[in-house]
Design a protein around this nucleic acid. Structure first.
Lengths: 197, 197
DNA sequence: AAACGATACGGAACAATGTTCCGCTTGACA
DNA sequence: TGTCAAGCGGAACATTGTTCCGTATCGTTT
């Protein structure tokens, strides 16, 4: 008899399936580091020692695999927002540090930023998931920094997050382009024209 | 006897070849408008009424075709720089208007911005050509605006141009993301913290 | 006008890559 | 141990950029 059955509860998965899923996630993470996020599906399958069919059984498409690989890190970034707000001297300082965190995350994953704004069918999911998770956090930081008069009001967190993501595209491999620096410029543009103090 | 021969002068091309090249450029321009810059090569060939081989005879790869299609518009944008500097009230105003021009150009060509930062082998050419032509113009505007104390000094035109290009990626199709607005934020970040007047 | 050779053309064929399909294998449970 | 749904491997398919080569065409020469 099944451990769980019916009633809408999650079905137990076979042991080999669980094992393969983990192998896949680990292999994908390694391959992404070595060859970039746009590494061929076949390479990932080979690295995990499974067939391509197995990938697609666990992850409906490439984007879902990418999502799964980075889920924890995005989660950590999201959770860092409120923490920074509590820790830093001012809301604006917290905002700056949080965006730094996000930029570091994107820039250190070869090609992740590029894939984030790809308009392929499956990537909409990835895109949406990232933003759904992070935009509310950004919104909270914006609200606090606007409240303290350090940044303009009326900024759209979604739009700014997308802008920051876009600015991270193609960093790495071009010593003349520093994503952190240009994001710094953008964040400077967020400040109120007339600042208190 | 050949009209021109030897001595390094350009070889005369056959009449049908010239005709096909023009047909190709016209067809490509139309297809790009209708289906985006990432339209399949076959579609362009079909629209021009030629075989794919003919495309590759005239343009070594997709990127070269794209370059050829937009050459005139980029040229016009480059030439607008000095003109604006002469026309507008202040260098900063000229800079703002010029960047607007560039953003409009990128945003109205579906997918052009996206392809600009693709790291494919052939796209390096496209990328390089755009920047080679526009960075000096930007540099001139920056120099003037820095001179008048309206923007920070030490800004790298190449880096800022790339940033603006990146910000244009994926505009269109997302009513929540307005490239012009976020570029405005970035440009605001260029201003000196302490402005005269 | 006819012949000829270089130029150009068309589209089949190749390579890379995401995705689907299906016959075979295997783990879980009776 | 027998059964069978869950799971697996990898061949096959679809799409797209690019190359190749046999054939057609243009421009020149006779």
């Amino acid at each position: 008899m099944r451990v769980q059955h019916g009633g809408g509860a999650a079905r137990t998965k076979r042991a080999d399936a669980r094992r393969n899923e983990k192998a896949l996630l680990d292999a994908a993470a390694e391959v992404f580091v070595a060859s970039g996020v746009d590494a061929p599906v076949r390479d990932i399958a080979a690295a995990a020692g499974v067939g391509v069919g197995t990938i697609y059984r666990h992850f409906p498409n490439r984007a879902d695999l990418i999502t799964a690989v980075y889920r924890h890190q995005v989660e950590a970034c999201a959770e860092a927002g409120p923490a920074l707000l509590a820790t830093e001297a001012t809301p604006y300082a917290a905002l700056v540090r949080w965006i730094d965190l996000f930029v570091d995350f994107l820039v250190t994953k070869h090609g992740l930023a590029a894939v984030m704004q790809s308009d392929g069918p499956g990537f909409a999911t990835l895109h949406a998931w990232f933003l759904d998770r992070l935009v509310p956090v950004c919104n909270q930081l914006f609200a606090a920094a606007a409240e303290s008069g350090e940044i303009r009001s009326g900024l759209d967190p979604y739009e700014v997050m997308r802008a920051v993501g876009n600015l991270c595209v193609g960093a790495e491999g071009d010593p003349r382009y520093d994503a952190r620096r240009v994001v710094g410029l953008l964040v400077a543009g967020l400040r109120t024209a007339d600042r208190p103090g």
